[in-house]
């Protein structure tokens, strides 16, 4: 009995040592390897009147040729396309509203990214504004002619109109430029947030060690309290 128990202890010592070596190897490999995670992620942002994005496995390579679904805010499918060899995709949209981009690799990987109406608003404002401007100035010119204002008045009105149009145009282009500049930053942030940090890894290992300790403590306790039947199980 005692010999057997000794053997068992020796054996579990060996396993633990071997396992620890295996574990160290894996941890080192993980820290050294550039592709450290295994989760599909998709990022998308408005680019003018289109949505442009990229699907990738976190920490590494692009998700090539996978299905990308474009849904509206309520989850109704609008269109479906596939990512290219670099995991990129681009889809033109017809209105500024909420969208959801869902990537599907077909083998059970799935990822989602929301696009808010505000992101797309710039491009559609521009269209609406240019359309409205055209008709607006026309009708104004007509009415001005009908009333028959002096030439000077006309210049004044046109000047004010031009001013307003110009400031709106500047606002839009600044908005677009800022969005363009921020895009890589947002993309990098999304990727960094999805990446596994060392503290996650160590936290998980700590939990496993703790659970094993708890289990050992529990069985030990049960053994000592149920005196005598040490080998009942």
């Amino acid at each position: 009995m005692a010999r057997e128990a000794g053997g068992r202890e020796r054996v579990s010592g060996w396993t633990s040592r071997l396992g620890a070596r295996l574990l160290c190897g894996l941890v080192l490999l993980m820290l050294a390897s550039p592709s450290v995670a295994h989760r599909l992620q998709v990022f998308a942002a408005a680019d003018g009147a289109a949505i442009e994005g990229r699907a990738y496995f976190v920490g590494g390579h692009p998700a090539r040729d996978i299905a990308i679904q474009v849904l509206d805010g309520e989850g109704e499918p609008i269109t479906e396309l596939r990512s290219d060899a670099e995991g990129r995709f681009r889809v033109d949209v017809s209105a500024a509203r909420d969208y959801r981009i869902v990537a599907h690799s077909g083998d059970g990987h799935r990822a989602e990214w929301p696009i808010s109406a505000a992101e797309l608003a710039g491009a559609f404002d521009e269209r609406a504004a240019s359309g409205a401007d055209g008709t607006g100035s026309d009708s104004r010119a007509e009415s001005a002619q009908a009333v028959g204002p002096s030439a000077q008045e006309l210049v004044c009105i046109e000047g004010a109109e031009l001013d307003r149009a110009l400031s709106a145009a500047i606002e839009r282009s600044v908005e677009q430029a800022v969005a363009r500049q921020l895009r890589p930053l947002r993309e990098a942030l999304a990727e960094a947030q999805a990446q596994v940090a060392l503290r996650d890894l160590l936290g998980g290992l700590g939990y496993i060690a703790g659970l094993a300790g708890l289990g050992l403590w529990w069985t030990r306790r049960r053994k000592t309290s149920g005196a005598g039947d040490t080998d009942a199980r």
């Binding site: 396993t15 633990s16 396992g19 620890a20 295996l22 574990l23 894996l26 941890v27 490999l29 993980m30 390897s33 592709s35 450290v36 995670a37 295994h38 496995f57 590494g60 596994v196 890894l201 998980g204 290992l205 496993i208 060690a209 659970l211 094993a212 289990g215």
Partner: peptide
Amino acid sequence: AAVLAAAFFVASLIS
């Protein structure tokens, strides 16, 4: 079991 669970846990990070 704990050591192999830990190895399994970490192995998923190397893809």
